[in-house]
Amino acid sequence: MSAYLTKRISYMLIILLAASLLIFCLYALTPGDFISNNIKLSPERKAELREIYGFNKPLLERYGIWMKNAFHGDFGYSLAQQKPVLTLFNEYIWNSFLLAVVSTFLTWVIAVIIGVVSAYKQYSWFDTLVMVLIFAAMSLPSFFIGLFLIKLCAVDLKWLPPGGMLTTGSNATGWAYVKEVIHHMTLPVVVMTLLGVGSLTRYFRSNMIDVIKQDYIRTARAKGLKENKVLFRHALRNALLPAITLVGFELPSLFGGSLIIEKIFNWPGIGQLYIQSFGLRDYPLLMGFTMLLAVLTVIGTLLSDILYHIADPRVRLH
């Protein structure tokens, strides 16, 4: 295991180094930046700021400075927000993390339950209804579902707030603050769960159908085991093994936020901040966020491989 981890970490560092160069060059070579597009600044002030922030230096020299600072935990300074990039991450990323964790948990629980029952009752009316609803949910764009639920639940029925994380002017603390946040996050969590549960349910359903047909499932039933025990202890355990590889891809989404959902519901998360930064050409923030996603992706891939080995020791790590 130690030799495998050493080799994988070496590969990860090489991949991240190549990704950092690609990310930096992509944003650095994009025409326009926050200083150039700021009509409030005079040409002299623009030239002064470009000199202060080193935008006039050669590309590779700028990349070297950026990487050197990144190794010391400094991903630059957001010109639009007038704050360090890491400070902005700390302010916004945990709001996105809250939405992602709750919606991911609900997505997996619902997908596992529906997928198991649908596979067990294959070609029944329940299975047919599930497949129709799954394809319907997957075919509708996220902004349509979000706006429809805002119209229905917030505007017409007035059950839930249309957006934001807290009521305007709220000074709630303690449990009152928690209840208010839960009240505001209900709609975006519902939308994110609906969007994710469709494909994951199909995945579990197909895995369960394959596992149920195996000989050891027939043997378990022949021994007189209860059907619930056969399904959830024997079949589901093996059907979940391929899904472990999906865990690694969940890590970037936990911290990356949902760009469209956060914008629709005005949720103060990293996704909405990322969209705003695009419009303002705030490249230091964009580079730092993209690099963060790259780091989380390679870490998530490593975790999924290790978890798969733990769950199934027959799989060898090379």
Rank of each mutant, 00 (worst) to 15 (best):
I134W: 09
K179E: 11
V181W: 10
G174M: 12
Q122M: 09
V190K: 02
I134M: 09
V197Y: 05
V130H: 02
I113H: 07
K121D: 03
F148Q: 06
V116H: 01
L194F: 09
S118F: 06
S142W: 05
F126T: 00
G163C: 07
V190P: 14
S142L: 05
H184Y: 11
W159C: 06
H183Y: 14
M131V: 13
K158S: 07
G196Q: 01
F143W: 11
V155N: 11
I134N: 08
L157P: 11
V117P: 01
P162H: 13
M165R: 15
F144G: 00
F148Y: 13
L129F: 09
Y120T: 10
V189Q: 00
G198K: 04
F135V: 12
G146P: 10
M185Y: 13
P188R: 03
V116Y: 02
P188H: 02
N171F: 12
M131D: 06
S199T: 15
F143Q: 04
I145M: 09
G115E: 04
S118R: 01
V191N: 01
T193I: 02
P141F: 06
E180L: 05
Y203G: 08
T128N: 10
I110E: 07
F126N: 01
I182G: 04
S124T: 02
L166H: 12
H183D: 14
Y203K: 11
A176Y: 15
Y203I: 08
S199V: 15
A119Q: 02
Y123D: 06
A137F: 10
A176V: 14
D156A: 11
L194K: 04
A172N: 12
D127M: 01
G164Q: 10
K151V: 13
T173E: 12
V132T: 05
A172Y: 15
M185G: 12
F126I: 00
F135E: 06
G169K: 04
V116Q: 03
G146R: 06
A137D: 01
T201C: 04
A136T: 15
H183R: 14
I150E: 06
P161F: 00
I145W: 10
P141I: 02
Y177V: 14
D156T: 13
P188N: 07
P188Y: 03
G198R: 01
A172S: 14
T168H: 08
G115M: 00
V117Q: 10
P141V: 07
S199K: 11
G115Y: 05
T201H: 11
K151G: 08
A137W: 00
R202D: 00
P162M: 09
E180T: 05
T186K: 03
G146S: 12
A172D: 11
F144E: 00
V130Q: 00
V191E: 03
S142N: 11
V191G: 05
I134K: 02
L152R: 08
F126R: 01
V132N: 05
V109K: 08
V197S: 03
I145S: 04
T168V: 14
V191D: 01
D156R: 09
N171L: 13
V130G: 00
Q122C: 02
P162T: 12
S142Y: 07
K121H: 03
W125A: 04
V112M: 15
L187C: 08
F126Y: 04
I110K: 05
T201W: 06
V109I: 15
G146K: 10
E180Q: 10
L160H: 01
A119M: 02
T173H: 12
M165V: 07
I150N: 01
